[in-house]
Design a protein around this nucleic acid. Sequence first.
RNA 1: GUCCCCUUCGUCUAGUGGUUAGGACACCGGGUUUUCAUCCCGGCAACGGGAGUUCAAUUCUCCCAGGGGAUGCCA
Length: 504
Amino acid sequence: MKARVRYAPSPTGLQHIGSVRTALFNYLFARSVGGTFILRLEDTDRTRSQDIYVKNLYDTFRWLGFYWDEGPDVGGPVGPYTQSERFALYREHAERLVDMGKAYYCFCSDDKSAAKDAEKSGQDQAEQEGDAQASGGFGYPRTCRGLDPAEAKRRAASGEPHVIRLKIPLDGVTGFDDILLGRIEWKNADVNPDPVLLKSDGFPTYHLANVVDDHLMGITHVMRAQEWIPSAPLHMIMYEAFGWEPPRLCHLPMVLGDDGHKLSKRHGATAVDEFRRRGYLEAALINYVAMLGCSYEDGRDLYSLEDLARLFSMDHINKAPAVFDYVKLEWFNGQYIRMLSDEELAARITPFMAEAGLVSAKPSALEVARLLAAAPLVKERLKYLSDAPEALRFLFAEPAVPPVEELLPKKMDAAGAARALGLAMELLEANDPADHDACEAAFRSGGAEAGLKLGDLLMPLRVAVTGTKVSPPLFQSIAVLGKATAIQRAGKALAALKAANERP
RNA sequence: GUCCCCUUCGUCUAGUGGUUAGGACACCGGGUUUUCAUCCCGGCAACGGGAGUUCAAUUCUCCCAGGGGAUGCCA
């Protein structure tokens, strides 16, 4: 049977590292076995679901560059793929369970805020525990489980507010064989007593919708984060109650922050959007995330999405949670930036340059040409695409004349710096910066005659031309900038040095 | 509290009943160099603890500890 897997996010927040990781693993698995990857929108929480998050979902995956074979936007044979559009299905199934005696109507009021307050204050501890006792230790005390079914059905039909709850067997054992973790079992007494399947607003809970849709959509493998393990038994009980064959489950190790807790906003960037804005390449992010909790070939670090899809295998997944390491991701990003062609890099940094106001939003032909010429100057130097504006600013804007102290090489005074700069200007006049080797030879020998090391000779010129002590290689930079402009800037700096020198 | 999962360098990981326990990132040295990077070379650093099984355990079993997760009419 052809494998069918799904990514089933709820549009209640931005797509983040954790969710994308789950999506990626499902995608890779599907590709590796020639299966189908499905997107299903689980928008059953109507207070938290929002359209902007759906848009963010589409944007994110378009950017990442891997996509589903079936989904709300692309359609497919078992749609609709948005749960709110399958509304009727869930009540129907929940009631079927009621009719089979596997679930029941519950008319208890939803007083969770009161319950939460009580829990916090600790005042009603004894009372809470007393209630808990009746339910076998925790959770809902199963108050309505004993109601007469016919009577309950009549009350529900008459419009009395209600939910439908699943009957968790009072004794016995429920378990499943996790592909990764092996057999996991629970005493039914330890399973969350009688979880809600259908909410009072008529919408299904995650549990119901998930199980019904996974079955109806022919899902064969469910890969999700390990935080879902505790809900597995109740899903199994549902499959059993419906008489359905459950999919194979595989619980992925979680992604943690550096403090060992579930990755969240306070650990830094977690929304994929944010990584994009900060100048990460999608290939780097995908490569890094794919290797969190998984390995492919020993000794290899760099994998394209295609490589990963080919090499992926569930038995290379680790059991232990993995800490998300921004530093290592940064390294990946640098690697991928270096792999870009000049054309690609120029195109990639353009939006960042535009945002910094260094080129127009729709760059002119001249700007495009200069961006292309600038790309090789920074390719080895960027950690993030967003570093480009700072590194290349001097090519697109006139830097302020540097303060005198900036122009001084180590252990050199203004007079010395002026001499060095003057010499550098002469040498520059006499040479073609585009001819790198000739230029360097000329500066080297010219400097030697004046008793100047190449670095010291170049530093004042570098600062004068680029406005900073740290820049791309000078001759190449000047070649892109234009010799005349460089000499003009150097002239201004020289004047400043001389003025400083004349002051006592 | 209860239930469940996990445990190899700081981090991501490879690995085997007998290995100098390998790689990558980070870090520390050194080299190349025009600043910064890149690049190259070298170094540091791990099998959580305790019992077993075994000639031999990082590897198999059990216990413990530590960490994490769940315990919603959120997913």
